[in-house]
Amino acid sequence: MTATNSSPPEDIPDSVVTALQDSDDGQLREIIHYAQQLLGEHPSITDAIESREGEELVRTEDHGAYTIAVVKRPDETGEARGPFTYRVRWAPPVEDEDGGGKYHWHYLGRVHGDSEGKSRD
């Protein structure tokens, strides 16, 4: 194989990087095809997000690695009712952690304007 000038992403295991670098063009095309099939089998984080207790999802926007979620709190009144915007990311399980990972909700702020708008996804 010829030397490459591209740097692999840090989170790809060295064994995968080596296998890819040692592959010929035909093998790389097959690897890409297989990886695309695997991606297609994974549900979108946006499709998997569920309302948290006391909140109702108003809309979601898929941004690939994260989802923007707008929620309201129907049991609250006034400013506490919302709507509020969060960036939601999926965190895979840590080695010592039981279970299959979890969602991390990062508060972005209160929504102003058309809070009941339709989902853009």
Rank of each mutant, 00 (worst) to 15 (best):
E50C: 07
Y34C: 07
D62Q: 03
P9L: 10
P93C: 04
H112I: 14
D62N: 15
E61K: 15
F84T: 03
S23H: 05
G26F: 07
D14N: 12
S44N: 10
F84N: 03
R87V: 10
Q37L: 13
V94H: 06
S115I: 08
V58C: 11
P74S: 04
L108M: 13
D24A: 13
R29E: 09
R120H: 08
S6I: 15
E41K: 15
Y86T: 00
I32W: 06
G40Q: 05
H42R: 13
K102D: 11
L39D: 12
W90Q: 05
R52A: 09
S44C: 10
H33Y: 12
T4V: 09
Y86I: 00
S115Y: 11
G100Q: 10
V70M: 00
A48D: 10
G82N: 00
E61G: 06
I49D: 00
R73D: 03
P83W: 03
S44A: 15
R73N: 14
I45W: 07
D114K: 11
G40S: 12
S6A: 15
R52C: 02
D62C: 03
S15T: 13
P74R: 04
R81T: 11
S15G: 06
S115N: 08
A69H: 00
R110L: 06
K118H: 10
L28I: 14
D24S: 12
E55F: 00
E76L: 10
S119Q: 08
Q21P: 01
P13W: 01
H112S: 14
D25C: 09
V58R: 13
E61F: 07
